[in-house]
Design a protein around this nucleic acid. Structure first.
Lengths: 239, 239
DNA sequence: ATCCAAGCTTAAAGGACCTGTAAAGGGCCG
DNA sequence: CGGCCCTTTACAGGTCCTTTAAGCTTGGAT
């Protein structure tokens, strides 16, 4: 019983010879010159050239998060001089690596060994900020031991904040980056969603993590500077 | 956090140098000159020389069946001339192989990659989630003492949910992974089958295990967090 | 102290999404 | 060939989410 395999490599010759080999072994094979031409194909195994992964860590991360490749095993192909680097890709989440050129037999054996294993479990992809954790896999916000369900927009906004902690964003910037695309909403919309988030964090005392920066926008910070102003030269004359 | 590793190799020098390397990486390492000196040690990983496995198929089979090594990953070590044979060991159930002599870095990377994977498990025939059990052998869903017969698609969907408890899946992902291949159905189809499952679980009060995540898809969870949404802005105003 | 600008809160309209029902299409077995 | 069951599609009804708008509160400056 064959598996589905996607080959991503720049050289046509290598692609087709590899393809022939794998098809003879009963697999369903497709080729692509570059990543991103897969069109919804969900390969059980991804054979990808070292050069198609740059930067490596980022690319692997993206493959692990993408819908169609989350469950794929990944074998990295690299010429011998680069093999050392390819080996390091194992550290970053690849399942195996192979030196090019390779012998047909070794390819088949490694491919089969890889396919025999259960697909690499998606390492928990969670965003953390002190006591609160956004688990994208289960789509929940954990505050201590409590789990909150967030509406779609609330969820995206929270994820954006957690990915960009400490920085201030204007309302229009938030609308551009945390909202679904092709949505044109007024700036007040942000206020409402920020409020919803604060409201849900309030019972746990974490609503102060989303901070208003008057005249600029909002900032998320896990270490809520204590109430009152900061870094502002205050008139010494007190009432 | 280290893992337990057993090195089986005839040469003392190779054993100790390898041991030092792995201990420096924080693992709990033991050595043996031959297989069968392990004395109840249950290694997470077995580093074993090619020559200690003869005949190969038999030895691997025995390791997979033996109590102390059933859960161990296995990496086969072989001098380059024998590497071809060692590669074939992958076909017979080893997890990886490595040429001797090796560079320390490659050893560590492969060991870690191997350990990161879940141990090869004789996949269970029964999937359990709290009070409900899907028995693939008899093709039935057991809820408490009652047995339900599920239609094919219902059965696959239920099995998929039980194999991936807690995570949210979009409709397209469910169609891709829980439906028979080469089936192209609309996303609404998933809704109906989810309903069928819920309907059959309802008499037992377990229909809440399949949870809707609005805008994203569905999730199966045996612990159906307390009713509905939490902390949603509710009219606090006077009656 | 007072005023203006900016942010906060609430309510309600509108729409997107999910549910449940019904009926058509297809395969399998008698 | 006919009936039955499973699967899929279609649609009405209802629920929940998003956005807008309006009044209220707060912060900062005159």
């Amino acid at each position: 019983m064959g598996s589905s395999i996607l080959i991503v490599h720049g050289e046509k010759q290598l692609r087709t010879s590899t393809r022939n080999l794998l098809e003879k072994a009963g697999h369903d094979v497709r080729e692509a010159k570059e990543l991103g031409q897969a069109n919804g194909f969900r390969p059980d195994l991804l054979l990808i050239s070292w050069t198609a992964l740059s930067p490596v860590a980022d690319s692997l991360q993206r493959l692990r998060n993408h819908d169609t490749t989350r469950q794929s095993r990944i074998i990295v192909l690299a010429p011998r001089p680069d093999l050392r680097a390819a080996i390091n890709a194992l550290e970053l989440g690849a399942d195996d690596c192979l030196a090019v050129p390779f012998e047909g037999e070794e390819l088949l054996v490694r491919v089969n060994a890889c396919l025999r294993r259960p697909p690499s479990s998606p390492q928990a992809d969670r965003l953390v900020a002190g006591p609160i954790v956004l688990d994208r896999g289960v789509h929940r916000l954990l505050v201590g031991d409590n789990a909150l369900e967030l509406a779609p927009t609330e969820f995206r906004l929270m994820a954006f904040f957690l990915e960009n902690q400490g920085r201030v964003f204007s309302r229009s910037e938030l609308l551009a980056r945390a909202w679904a695309k092709n949505i044109h909403a007024g700036p007040r919309t942000v206020d409402v969603h920020v409020r919803r988030l604060r409201q849900q964090l309030e019972p746990y005392g974490h609503d102060t993590m989303i901070q208003t920066v008057r005249g600029f926008g909002y900032r998320f910070s896990a270490t809520p500077l204590d109430r009152g102003r900061v870094g502002r030269p205050s008139p010494v004359g007190a009432p």
